[in-house]
């Protein structure tokens, strides 16, 4: 069942601000900024929407890359960027409201980067049905 078409454009990090600016000028709404780790690559998706059309910009980086913040264009991105910083340890520069790693306080630093193998001696992994 296909609900809607979603486009994803992969762009290099240096073009990020330009591309986001284009979206902003075209009056797109920032839906979310989300991050995922696939092997040792980090993917950050910037999702936009206008008139029910959903599109993404995607950058693929490694952990050391410093990502420019888009908060000058979309102030609301501070929530997502701080979250990604706290959970994945990705550095953003120029965030308009920078919590310096205190937005989501977790026990382990950057818990989403690389799997934390929390010992689970009480119950072995359940096998899927």
């Amino acid at each position: 069942m296909t609900i809607e078409k979603q486009t994803t454009v992969v762009i290099p990090v240096d073009l990020l601000l330009d591309e986001v600016k284009k979206m902003h000028d075209a009056k797109y709404r920032l839906v979310q900024v989300g991050c995922g780790q696939f092997k040792d690559q980090i993917e950050i998706n910037y999702s936009f929407e206008r008139d029910l059309v959903f599109s993404n910009l995607r950058i693929t980086i490694d952990k050391e890359t410093q990502v420019p913040s888009v908060t000058d264009l979309y102030h609301a991105a501070f929530v997502y960027e701080n979250e990604i910083h706290d959970l994945f340890g990705i550095g953003f520069f120029g965030i308009s409201l920078d919590y310096q790693g205190t937005f989501i306080r977790t026990k382990d630093k950057h818990p989403f980067y690389n799997t934390i193998n929390k010992e689970d001696s009480l119950r072995p992994e359940e096998e899927g049905s």
């Binding site: 839906v31 979310q32 989300g34 780790q37 696939f38 609301a76 929530v79």
Partner: peptide
């Protein structure tokens, strides 16, 4: 928004949820 990504195994690679409250905090 639920972002779901799988690689053909029974465990997903990534599930990310952007909830309405997060979007409304700004």
């Amino acid at each position: 928004v639920h972002y779901i990504r799988g690689n053909g195994t029974k465990n997903l690679l990534r599930h990310r949820v952007r909830t309405p409250t997060t979007a409304n905090i700004p």
